[in-house]
Amino acid sequence: MKISHVVKEKMNLLGQKKIPFVFIIDYQEDTSVVIPLSEINTDMLLYDFEGISNTESRTIKSEKSIQLEVFPVDYTTYLNQFNRIQHEIASGNTYLLNLTTSTPIKSKYSLKEIFHCAKAKYRLWLDDKFVCFSPETFVKIIDNKIFSYPMKGTIDGSIPNAESIILSDTKESSEHYTIVDLIRNDLNLVSKNVTVEQFRYIEKVETHSGSILQVSSRISGILNNNWNMHIGDIFDKLLPAGSISGAPKERTIEIINLTETHSRGFYTGIAGIFDGNTVNSMVMIRFIEKNDNNYYYKSGGGITSMSDARKEYEELIQKIYVPVY
């Protein structure tokens, strides 16, 4: 999977000229948006990258929560996909795979209203096609240094001793080690002196049904001084994001394409902003898509040999939420 030559060169050219731009690259990397900030129309695109935004701060206040009516895939269907992945794992073809699904939902809110209500590090609304409110950074580039923050491991924050439980869970720990190793290898493709600066720290996210805890790490590397002339090349080498594909990446993506029954589209792609000096980007998770006036919430989780099908199914549903103020 490679970014198209046209998109890559446009990112490189804008970076070379230090023209600020937003980029949105879908999972398949065949439908992308790259547009200078000066040309963005707020009727088509709204963004907020950790406070760098083209819209006023939250203009719509929701009630205590945004209630979603959820119609999840039945467990038997999910189990069939899960078992297929376990067979691939047992055959040595993958040892971590991020399985996702598309869940029909109903909400009284429009996608734009959800954008304004949502509390998240990153928010994105595109032409009433989808809204994303992601907690996960993909990469940041600051002062010739590139940072990545892989996120793996989720638990209900209301469970007593939730933090110690998730940090001591063998399956979750193994999965996180795998992703950190994968991202470290990815960063080595574009930078040098790659270092794991912080390993397995907790982030708390408030949802419409309570809090959840998520486990992240911080990895960094050193870029060449002229990195801004090669922004497209850098992302081309890093995509797709390891945290939403798996390891080994290339073979795992093939298995994902054979197993999943929906098109991911922009879900699990990446989006970001170059402000003329720095880059900040996210992985597009926590994602609602509109198709024929129907809403679909796309969510998933990592599968390893130690995964329990029922727990993974429940986590898939647990991630169907909108974080609000």
Results as ranks from 00 to 15, higher is better:
195 T>I: 12
196 V>P: 02
196 V>W: 05
197 E>F: 14
198 Q>H: 15
198 Q>I: 14
199 F>V: 00
200 R>L: 01
201 Y>S: 05
201 Y>T: 02
202 I>H: 02
202 I>F: 02
203 E>C: 06
204 K>D: 02
205 V>M: 12
206 E>P: 14
206 E>S: 15
206 E>L: 15
206 E>R: 15
207 T>A: 11
207 T>K: 10
207 T>R: 10
214 Q>V: 09
217 S>A: 04
218 R>K: 12
218 R>H: 04
219 I>V: 13
220 S>D: 04
221 G>E: 02
221 G>D: 00
222 I>R: 11
222 I>K: 11
222 I>Y: 06
222 I>M: 10
223 L>Q: 03
224 N>M: 04
225 N>L: 04
226 N>G: 01
227 W>Q: 03
228 N>R: 11
229 M>Q: 14
229 M>A: 14
230 H>G: 02
231 I>E: 02
232 G>N: 00
232 G>W: 02
232 G>S: 02
233 D>W: 07
235 F>M: 05
237 K>R: 12
237 K>E: 08
239 L>W: 03
239 L>Q: 00
240 P>R: 07
240 P>N: 09
241 A>Y: 06
243 S>Q: 09
245 S>I: 01
245 S>Y: 02
245 S>C: 09
246 G>Q: 11
246 G>N: 12
247 A>V: 14
247 A>R: 11
248 P>K: 07
248 P>Y: 03
248 P>W: 08
251 R>E: 14
252 T>S: 10
253 I>C: 09
253 I>R: 07
255 I>Y: 05
256 I>L: 13
257 N>H: 14
258 L>D: 14
259 T>F: 12
260 E>Y: 07
260 E>T: 08
263 S>E: 15
263 S>R: 15
264 R>E: 06
264 R>F: 06
264 R>L: 08
265 G>M: 04
266 F>C: 12
266 F>W: 13
267 Y>L: 10
268 T>V: 08
269 G>V: 00
269 G>D: 01
269 G>L: 07
270 I>D: 06
270 I>P: 08
270 I>S: 10
270 I>V: 15
270 I>T: 13
273 I>K: 07
273 I>Q: 00
273 I>H: 05
276 G>R: 12
278 T>N: 15
279 V>G: 06
279 V>P: 06
280 N>L: 14
280 N>T: 15
280 N>V: 14
281 S>Y: 01
282 M>I: 05
282 M>S: 11
285 I>A: 00
285 I>R: 05
286 R>A: 10
286 R>F: 12
287 F>E: 06
287 F>N: 03
288 I>G: 05
290 K>D: 04
290 K>L: 05
291 N>T: 13
